[in-house]
Computed example of a mutant assay.
Amino acid sequence: MTVPSHSRRIVYRETAADRAPQSVGLSHVSIELGHLYMEDLQVPESESRLAEYFRSVSYWVKSVESMGRWGTTSPRISTCFLIDDYFSRLDEPRVIIKKVVDAASKSGLAIDYIARESSCAEFGTAQLARQVFDRIVPEPLPGANGSRPPVKESGWLANGRRSFDPSLEPAMADQSWHSPEQSAANRHSIFMDVQIRDSLWSCSFLAAVWQLLRLGLLRPEEKQLTKPVPLRDEFPSDWSELPPVIKLTATKNPFCAYRSFSILPTRFMEVEMAARTVLHQVELDPLVLEDLNGRASLEGIQLPPGILDRIDYAFINDWSPTTGR
């Protein structure tokens, strides 16, 4: 039977409506056991210092495991460790990884996953840093006159209005110095101006990318970034040949998780505060958020709506070869 032309329906759909985010496994919480620099790993006393560091970390891991805030009495918990191969030249992977894993083991800790910091910048066809950078939506500021270059040009991102010094500008009769001002200040401002990049991506920005990756909020086509490669004995001689994230144990708990908990030396506090400034201004993929929230709901878990509220920290004092403390 011929259908009259006037009764035919044409349905228009956006391409995005047919797009589904790549699936990733999810633990309840991802515990970051540390993030150390090359100097931490290569000084003569590094093994004893690492053992001392992991002893402090072990108490926090036990606390996290017993916190009871993960939506279940038997949470899926995975552990990870980030190694800086982006800013530094390291010994061969087998040397560094064995040193870290052995030091953790002496304190009763098992590192399930080790990641290379350079993979947060770029791996294969995946350019995670560029992907996140392109999703930055700076907060609109009242009274802004466009005199400051946007983050895409300057490489800097602030959490509010920067100060103004008329002595550095052409004479303007109606302008005077004003202090910086945080956009969402709680009575008094805590203003931050974060460098995103120069010739390299900044440590603070890569820390933001790292948090998004662990939280399952980045779904790159390079699946090794979210589905680590099992590797326990035979390591390549060059870091560039090592998968971006490797799995060192037989755990069934995935690398990505609904929530993250980072246990870090206190010298990373400023880095993480800067990373949170970035994360507050990153527009996330709504389909990925929908996927995470839907899967959490099926498990009876109510995730905080704000991404920053899914990230917890513990900062511990440590002796640092990079600062001499």
Rank of each mutant, 00 (worst) to 15 (best):
S262R: 04
P265C: 09
Q302K: 13
E272D: 09
L303V: 02
S260L: 03
V288I: 07
M269E: 07
E299S: 03
L264M: 05
V288T: 11
F261P: 00
E283C: 15
M269G: 02
T277P: 08
T266C: 12
D291F: 13
D291M: 15
P304E: 04
F261C: 05
Q281A: 08
Q302Y: 08
R267W: 09
F261T: 05
T277V: 12
E283S: 15
P305M: 02
R267M: 06
P286F: 13
Y258Q: 12
A257D: 02
R276S: 07
H280N: 15
L287G: 12
L284T: 09
L289N: 11
I263D: 02
V271M: 11
I301V: 15
E290C: 05
M273E: 14
R276Y: 04
L292V: 06
R267F: 05
A257I: 00
V288Q: 01
S262N: 10
L292R: 14
T277Q: 01
P286L: 15
E270Q: 08
M273G: 11
D285M: 06
V282D: 10
A296R: 02
R276L: 05
G294K: 15
G306I: 11
E299C: 09
R276F: 06
F268K: 01
G300R: 09
V282A: 07
L287I: 14
N293L: 00
R295W: 08
I263C: 05
